[in-house]
Design a protein around this nucleic acid. Structure first.
Lengths: 193, 193
DNA sequence: TGTACATCAGTGAACGCGCGTTCACTGATGTAC
DNA sequence: TGTACATCAGTGAACGCGCGTTCACTGATGTAC
C-alpha cells in the first residue's frame, strides 16, 4: 500500500533509534528480524531503508553518540563552573552502568566495532571524534590539543571502567567502584578553578 | 581409536589455549567448528571435553587472564623499582594494541561478557579479581584496599583506552594516543619513589 | 469530477549459510582370561 | 603368550534454529487523462 509523504522518513528514523538501543544492549550481533518486529514491521522491509546491516550499524552508532553526547552536554550545562564534574558524575552513575542500551557506545561496543573492518568502524571513529570535541573545552589543559588529548583519556578510561563495573555482579561493590572512579577522574581532569 | 594416556588432557588444553586466542580475536561469537578445525579436529569431538561452549569460554577467559597476567608480571620483574611503569608500558604498547588475540581480555571482551548471564560472566569476574590482586602491590596507595582500588582504576581505564585506540585507523594517531596514555597512567598510579 | 494507471513501503516465503549440539559409529589400544 | 572383548577420543552426518539478504507480491494513495 502507498503511505503518506514523510512516512518513509519516519520509519527509517524509528529503525535507527531502535537499532541504536538494541546494538548497545545486545551487541552488534543483534538481528534485523527482532529489530523490525519491535517496530511491528517485518524483516523484508528493512532493505527499502538500508543497503545492509553494516550501514545501519554505522548510522545507529552516530545516533547513539549524538544522543549520549546531548545528555552529557545538558548535565554540563546544569552545573556551570563544574561542567566536567557533572559529566563524570553522569557517566559513572549507577543508572548509566545499569543501562548500556541508553549509554555510551564506547563502553558498550568499541571492542566489537574495532574487530569490524567495514563502514561501522569508520563511523565510530568519526563519531568519537565529534563526541570528544564537545567535551574537550571543559577538560583541564592549556592548549586545545592538550584538552582534546585529555578528553580522549577521560572518556576512553571511563568507558573501560564502566564496562568492567558491568561485569561485577555485586551491587554494593559495583557502586563503590563507580564512586572511587568518579573521584579519580574528577581529580585528574577537572580544570583548576 | 584409543589414544595413549594423557592424550585427552593434552587435547583439552590445546582447545582451551586456541579458544583463549580466538575469542579475544573474533569475539565471543567465535565458533566451535572453526576452533576445532584449527586444531585439525572435527567439531563433534568438542563435547567429549566440554559440556557447552559457555563452559569453554569460562575456562578460556581464566587462561587468558593468567597468560596476560604472567607476561605483565615478567615485565614488572624486569624493572625493579619501576614495576608499575613497566606494566603500563607493556599494557599500552603498540604491540598489545595490534594484537588483541594475545592481549588483555578486559579490553577485548568485558562488554561482551557483561551481557552474558552465564558461567562466563562469573569466571570473568573471578579472573579479574586475581588479575588485579597480582598488581595491586605495585600500585600507589597507603592501604591494601586503596592499592586494590587503584589497580582496578588503572586496569579498567587502560583497557578502555586500548579498546578505543583499536578503533583508530591512523597508526600515527594511535601511537600518539597510546604515548599520552602511558604518561597519564604512570603519573597517576606510580607509587612515590 | 471520474477513471485508469503508476508508485512504492511493507509483506512474508525462500535463499544459502553457519551456529551449538547430538549421536551412531570407528578402530587402535588396554585389559581380562 | 594368545585371543576376545571393552574402552572411549575422535568422526562426520544430522538436528533445529536464526542469521542477512532477495524477491515476487500487495494494495492504498497520488497522478494523468
Amino acid at each position: 500500500m502507498r503511505y503518506p509523504a514523510e512516512h518513509k522518513e519516519q520509519t527509517r528514523a524509528r529503525i535507527v533509534t531502535a537499532a541504536a538501543r538494541r546494538f548497545r544492549r545486545h551487541g552488534i550481533g543483534a538481528g534485523i528480524a527482532g529489530l523490525m518486529q519491535e517496530l511491528s514491521l517485518t524483516h523484508g522491509g528493512f532493505y527499502r531503508h538500508f543497503k545492509s546491516k553494516d550501514r545501519l550499524l554505522a548510522e545507529a552508532l552516530a545516533e547513539a553518540f549524538d544522543d549520549v553526547g546531548e545528555k552529557l552536554r545538558k548535565a554540563a550545562a546544569g552545573s556551570p563552573g563544574n561542567e566536567i564534574g557533572a559529566v563524570i558524575d553522569h557517566y559513572l552513575s549507577e543508572v548509566h552502568c545499569a543501562n548500556p542500551a541508553q549509554g555510551c557506545p564506547i563502553a558498550a561496543l568499541a571492542a566489537d566495532v574495532a574487530r569490524d573492518s567495514r563502514s561501522a568502524r569508520v563511523a565510530m571513529e568519526h563519531a568519537v571524534e565529534g563526541y570528544l570535541a564537545r567535551f574537550a573545552p571543559f577538560c583541564a589543559g592549556t592548549t586545545t590539543e592538550e584538552r582534546h588529548r585529555n578528553a580522549f583519556l577521560l572518556f576512553s578510561g571511563m568507558a573501560g571502567t564502566l564496562a568492567a563495573a558491568r561485569v561485577t555482579a555485586d551491587p554494593s561493590r559495583r557502586s563503590s567502584l563507580l564512586r572511587s572512579a568518579r573521584e579519580f577522574y574528577k581529580r585528574s581532569f577537572s580544570p583548576p578553578s
